[in-house]
Design a protein around this nucleic acid. Structure first.
Lengths: 115, 115
DNA sequence: CCAAAAGTTCGACCCGTGTCAAACTTCGAT
DNA sequence: ATCGAAGTTTGACACGGGTCGAACTTTTGG
């Protein structure tokens, strides 16, 4: 039993109910190229993945920020495995709330050069 | 005689080829609630519509800006009819370039309260 | 027990973009 | 020939959001 478990400490961050997510929130989350990169990576490698294993062109603190935004927008689920924070795409759940949106985006080729 | 008259009086603004539009550009265009409001309005009323006939919570100059962004993102076509600038959704064209994206967005209910 | 690994939190900064008012342009009607 | 309607253009401004470094926390490994 870990110290955290003994202390009742829950390191699992809160996850919003997808019914409470607005389209505005989703678009604000997905408009950032770095965050789309994360979503794409999670989608291509079918399995969950730790934050650090995705190479991003930003610092660690910025990456944390992006994961936070994605989680708040209902796009990913996060949980701890040791010191690593794992990330999973909430694919079916999300598609039930916003049908067709994620497929349409993922199908699109997405050169990360900005506008 | 004005320069425009000498040039043949073409007040029609330039429209980008949809093949040159990036996903980034599209998302940046659609992340703004006012611009989504315009797109929705154009979609619900099947026919073309003048800028002024869409009631928006912004000034005229800001509205001009929004229409400009939508046009540059390949979402609308604009042409003059007298003093009125008409707007048409480039629906089929756009859906060929970004299949399913616009349908997925339009199908979504979109309370314009922000995140 | 100590140190390294993996993220998070906390300011701070800065650039983009949405906003408006004012002046201007173009067209249609009178 | 003039006036009003409809947009555009041009600055200017403000706020948000992406960015970073530094300090901190928690867990694992030696």
């Amino acid at each position: 039993m870990t110290a955290a478990a003994r202390a009742g400490r829950d390191r699992t961050p809160p996850h919003p109910d997808l019914a409470t997510i607005t389209l505005q929130q989703v678009l604000e989350a997905l408009v950032d190229p770095v965050r789309r990169c994360i979503v794409r990576h999670l989608h291509s490698t079918g399995h969950d993945v730790a934050c650090g294993t995705i190479e991003l062109p930003v610092s660690k603190s910025t990456a944390t920020h992006h994961f936070h935004v994605l989680r708040e927008a209902g796009l990913i689920r996060q949980y701890y495995a040791g010191t690593s924070r794992m990330n999973a795409l909430r694919l079916e759940e999300f598609d039930r709330a916003f049908p067709g949106l994620l497929p349409a985006l993922l199908a699109q080729r997405d050169g990360d050069r900005d506008a």
